[in-house]
Amino acid sequence: MDGFSAIPVFVAVVESGGFSPAARSLGISKSAVSKRVNQLEQHLGVKLLHRTTRKLSLTEAGKHYFEHAAKAHNAAKDAEDAVAQLQGEPQGLLRINTPMSFGRLHIAPLIAEFLTRYPKISIDMMMDDKVNDLVAEGFDLAIRAGDLPDSSLIVRKLAPLNSVLCASPAYLELHGSPTQIEQLSQHNCLQFSYSQDVKEWTFMRDGQSQSIEVKGNYRVNNSEALRDAMLQGLGIGRLPTFVAGPDIKAGRLVTLLDEFKMPNKTIHAVFAERQYLPAKVRAFIDFAVEYLAADQPYWELE
């Protein structure tokens, strides 16, 4: 077997931490990944991985091999990207990771026009509110909402991420509108599971922050599901304006405590640092900026 051809498979296994995630990122079966790694070990005459039921770890030989294999793999990707730039028209498979609600509401509607403009590109998009490892999962780029952990990823700002406190007119008619932050403790506060401050909400006013511990009978990991409950009068919640904007404009939701703001965040496009940015990635980022980038995003305009 040609050991060089197994490098992408071995690197994917190490970077993703297992055969199953490597198989997903490579688009092949788990058994095919395992077979290629076994063949590579036989070809080299050494064991590269310690395998247990819970995790994989590199052997001493595996550590040395991975150090050089990763460099070779990155060099091969740079070579492909350099050639692709000479081909002019962007092409190839573009794998995108985006949050569920933002992806469905504001990225998915752009896909048809993007693919019409760039017919040689095909897209594989995964919408997931959990933050996936861009490199390990094999994504070309991701849309990230909110704070970004320190990393080697390259960031391109797309739009501000503004959130509002709101409720339906039906809920407010029954329970009244809070006029002070402290009064939120008396209301049914619906919560987004993936928030960093699920039970303690923080607001800003005149440069000062104020937090309040809240409670409620519904917690969910999707902003649109949270909005649905609010529209049905279940309680008060925090929603990004990219979800709540149309309902606020139509009067189905009412903003509350407008003098208090939630901490400012940003929606970014992120991608791995590459010597030669693939034309397909650059094309999509420029396209997204064309439609989404603005100090006041279109979903907040009257």
Rank of each mutant, 00 (worst) to 15 (best):
L292V: 13
E200T: 04
L153Y: 13
E80I: 02
V83A: 08
I248C: 05
A69N: 12
L172P: 00
R104M: 14
Q196C: 04
R36K: 05
K215Y: 07
P119C: 00
S152N: 13
K280C: 04
G245S: 12
H68L: 11
R24V: 06
G251R: 10
R282Y: 04
T116W: 03
R117S: 05
V14T: 02
L253R: 14
E15N: 13
R252N: 12
D128M: 12
F284W: 05
F19S: 00
A112K: 07
L292Q: 11
N188F: 03
D129V: 12
A225L: 12
Q183A: 07
D81K: 02
K30A: 05
D197S: 09
V131H: 09
S195I: 07
S193L: 14
A294I: 11
Q42N: 08
G88Y: 02
A283Y: 00
R24D: 15
E300N: 11
V270C: 09
A159D: 13
A269V: 14
L190D: 09
G3T: 15
A69P: 15
F19N: 01
I285D: 00
L253P: 15
G3Y: 10
R227Q: 07
Q208M: 12
G92I: 03
K63A: 06
A108F: 06
I248R: 10
G3H: 13
S163Y: 07
E213L: 10
L239V: 13
A76H: 08
L239M: 08
N74Y: 03
D286G: 03
L257K: 15
M125S: 06
